[in-house]
């Protein structure tokens, strides 16, 4: 499903972020991407959703070479993905329900059926009570739940999480992780970047360990 073919990335300041990455991720797999800060975890994830282009090699997602896609095709590919970040990336001028419904809004599919779907998802994650609040009024854990809800509401094939538990306390981190685990059980491919050794020891999943831009 996702294939990294000898992928390297050099930034403008001649710093190697990734060197010759060769990896294959199957549909429905739960993958942990680990490594210390600066090991290249975020760079690897950005290449999957076309946020960065490789300097060498290619990333193939669902049969398409990501960096060769037109902006329209890239948008269509991203509709198959859900992306969650450490800093949540919520729109602060929109209510919780508007943030969760954002994918449907930008696709032009904010109809009653999808609104119901969002409601169900928010109720499941216990954030329906905050639907009309603005994100800054919620705790870090609740904000991350909103971000995960937004990523999951479209039932994506691929779920990408870039250190989503980095800013959370252990209890919230465990809750958040459970949400990803459930998504994987429903058939989504989950790629979860973390340096939380405790999470790794508790849960099953294939580990891709990065060290200075190389797969260890």
């Amino acid at each position: 499903m996702i294939h990294f073919k000898s992928v390297s990335k050099i930034y403008d300041n001649d710093v190697f972020a990734l060197k010759g990455i060769e990896a294959h991720i199957q549909k429905g797999e739960f993958i942990f991407v680990t490594g210390s800060s600066g090991a290249g975890k975020s760079t690897l994830l950005k290449m999957i959703y076309g946020g960065l282009k490789p300097s060498d090699g290619s990333v193939v997602v669902g049969g398409s070479i990501v960096d060769e896609l037109s902006s329209y095709r890239l948008a269509m590919l991203r509709r198959q993905m859900g992306i969650v970040f450490q800093d949540f990336k919520l729109l602060w001028d929109r209510s919780v329900v508007d943030n969760v419904c954002l994918p449907f809004y930008v696709w032009g599919k904010l109809n009653s059926e999808n609104k119901e779907l969002s409601e169900l998802m928010m109720k499941k994650f216990d954030i329906w009570k905050y639907r009309n609040e603005y994100p800054h009024k919620l705790s870090g854990g609740e904000q991350q739940k909103v971000a995960i809800c937004r990523a999951l509401v479209t039932s994506p094939w691929i779920l990408i999480a870039d250190e989503p538990t980095g800013n959370l306390d252990p209890k919230s981190a465990e809750e958040v992780f459970k949400m990803f685990y459930e998504a994987a059980q429903r058939g989504s491919t989950v790629i979860f970047a973390t340096h939380n050794e405790h999470l790794l020891s508790l849960h099953k999943g294939r580990v891709l360990k990065l060290d200075k831009g190389r797969l260890a």
Binding site: G51, A75, K89, L91, L102, P103, W107, G108
Partner: peptide
């Protein structure tokens, strides 16, 4: 500045240029 952040997020959610 305000719109730049929102546009990036919309792109990540799969918005086409037209829709943005």
């Amino acid at each position: 500045i305000l719109v730049f952040y929102a546009v990036r997020l919309m792109r990540l959610c799969g918005a086409t240029e037209f829709r943005i």
